[in-house]
Every structure is written in structure tokens, then in C-alpha cells.
Amino acid sequence: MTLFHAEDPLLQVRNVTRYYGDRIGCSEVSFDLWPGEVLAIVGESGSGKTTLLNCLSTRLAPTAGAIEYRMRDGAMRNLYQLSEAERRLLMRTDWGFVHQNAADGLRMNVSAGANVGERLMAVGARHYGNIRSAADDWLGRVEIDSDRIDDDPRSFSGGMRQRLQIARNLVTQPRLVFMDEPTGGLDVSVQARLLDLLRRLVADLGLSVVIVTHDLAVARLLSHRIMVMRQGNVIETGLTDQVLDDPREPYTQLLVSSILQV
């Protein structure tokens, strides 16, 4: 696999800290993300990984620290110095966000086709036929049958909803996708299929991904690099295989050893 061919980082995170009152959400997190790279943030519940993800994706302002993103014109911009309009444009063109609960990321009362087409319409597509064929194409790429294009996501299974959510995010060809436990709540066979699909899409499209998960198997399958968090701090980072096969920190060792073996 050709991984880190690009020269400059896509996302630069420096000392990002978020407090909830006196309590720490995440503290002093710094890392770089390169184009085409998949970074997994792992840790147990309450370790601050979702807080960090929300800070990165401009859904939650950090208390301190800076996050810079390389725009399509090549310039690094501080996300929290963008205007709200620029931030929204970024979120619906260059970025994607895949929620754990698909209902949070979908419009449940409009059809699958409209869900996929929404971003296109938001950036100015005004030709129904083109929007529909793009939606149809993307449903195909996430393995949803064409004849479901006019159905509500309410009538979809959990796995289908999650795939629809992915299609909806990828239709504008984003460069960076945030994922919050994308396989949470799905049974293992559906998880396996989704992971397969994600792996293929990420490789085909050269996506950069920041994925939050407590499931080390997901991290192992998808990510190139891993960041282990505990109590709001990053305690270990490294290549995925290296961290999982040879964990250095006692907590990481504990995490790795608590995977159920069948």
C-alpha cells in the first residue's frame, strides 16, 4: 500500500485541551495527520476520545490549543479562526462525519436518495436527474440496492443505515472523514461487512480518517496509526501493529489483553 506519499500534513493538532468546568475532557493532545492516513483513537469509555473528535471536527470548541487544516488551495488555516460559513462549507464538502448512531447523521424522514443528495444540493446542484444518478451511484458503492432509493432510512436495518450514512458523507468527495464508533451496536457479521467496505472506500478514495473506537479489532483492521487515550491524556501512539503487538504502557497492555479470544 502506498501510504504517506504526500509531503505535508493535512491536519495539524497542537496542545488541544478541553475542560468541562473543572473536569478534563482531553488534555494537551498534539498530532499530525497526513493525506491518506487512517488514525484510530482508542481508549475506554470516558477517556476523552469523543471529546477530542468533536474538538477536531469543530463541533465543540477546545478550551486551549490550535487545530490547523490544509484547505484545498494548500493553505493551512486555523479551524477556529474560520468564519462559521466557511466552517459549514468545509463540513459539507471537504469533510465527513460518521456518527455511531446513524439516526444522528441521517435525515430519517426523507428518502435515502435525498439523504445522499442533500450535500450536493447544499453546494448548489440544481439538476434533479444528475443528483439522483449520483445518489444511485453512491448507494451502489455502499451495497444498497437501487430499488431502495426512495425508501426512508427508518425502513433500513442498522447496517444499511450506517452504509447510507457513509454514502451521504462521501458523495462530495471529502478528503477527511471523522468516524465515531462507526461499527458500534452492529452485530459481528454486519460489522465485518462494514469494515470491509470502509477499508475499500478509504483505500480507493485516498481518504484521511480519524476514527474513534473502543474496539481494538476495528483499529487493527482500518488504521495505520493508533493513539491510546486514558483520562483525557494520550498515553501511547505509534503504528497500529506495533502498538497492538507490542504495547509499551501498562494500560495499553491491559487493553490489548482484555480482548476476548474465542
Binding site: A85, R107, V110, A114, G117, A122, V123
Partner: peptide, 17 residues
């Protein structure tokens, strides 16, 4: 923010249905 994509989602739904 003149973020009106949603309005066309409604019209899209109309045509689809």
C-alpha cells in the same frame, strides 16, 4: 449563512415520490 440546500431536499422528495 444562506444554507438552503435543505429546501431543495424537500422538492427532491416531492419529485421522487
Amino acid at each position: 449563512l444562506e444554507d438552503y440546500g435543505l429546501m431543495h431536499v424537500k422538492l427532491y422528495e416531492d419529485i421522487a415520490r
